[in-house]
């Protein structure tokens, strides 16, 4: 059974309370169509769980397959340093068909990001962080994207809302024993 090798911490992008009974970690690639399919499902899971769930996103760009995935991750990090990671995350998954540099610059302007800060991201300012996410994922048994971990254990079940909510409830229950 594969387990999360890197504990969730202050370096992570997270939504929901830090003391939520369940933490769901996604290793994702902004250009991966399967991550795109999972995006609205995970939103629905978050709505269903409310404050009982903390959701964490970590980068796992597979750039040989997805030529825009690296830049998209850099864009998200630039937004993150301006406190807008999740707006960027949502914007990318809602526009997966347009992730070339010009589109990313356009999204940056829409989010009010500084153009120079975005350029610095494209020049590699956050690449160490992105690589650290990626390698932590490899060490955790990430085997493609999206890979999901519920309270540190890789989830290999069906990726529909009902299955995920059931698995999360189960994790919450077992934690309280």
């Amino acid at each position: 059974m594969s387990r999360l090798a890197t504990p969730v911490g202050a370096h992570d992008h997270s939504e929901g309370p830090a003391d939520a009974p369940v933490t769901l970690v996604e290793y994702g690639d902004f250009e991966c169509p399967y991550c795109g399919e999972a995006y609205p499902i995970l939103k629905a899971v978050q709505r269903a769980m409310g404050d009982r769930l903390r959701f964490v996103f970590r980068h796992f760009p597979i750039v040989e397959s997805h030529p825009h995935a690296g830049r998209a991750a850099e864009f998200a990090e630039a937004a993150g340093s301006a406190g807008r990671f999740w707006q960027a995350h949502d914007m990318l998954y809602e526009h997966q068909d347009a992730l070339a540099d010009a589109s990313l610059r356009h999204y940056g302007a829409a989010l009010g990001l500084d153009a120079e800060a975005l350029q610095a991201a494209f020049d590699g300012r956050y690449d160490a962080h992105i690589r650290a996410d990626f390698m932590g994922g490899v060490r955790s048994g990430v085997n493609g994207t999206p890979s999901l971990f519920i309270n540190g254990v890789r989830y290999d079940g069906e990726r529909d809302v009902a299955s995920l909510v059931a698995a999360i409830h189960q994790a919450a229950g077992s934690r309280n024993i």
């Binding site: 690639d29 399967y34 597979i62 997805h66 493609g144 994207t145």
Partner: peptide, 8 residues
């Protein structure tokens, strides 16, 4: 699948 084993 994308992110398949060899791609990974």
């Amino acid at each position: 699948v994308c992110g398949d084993q060899m791609g990974l």
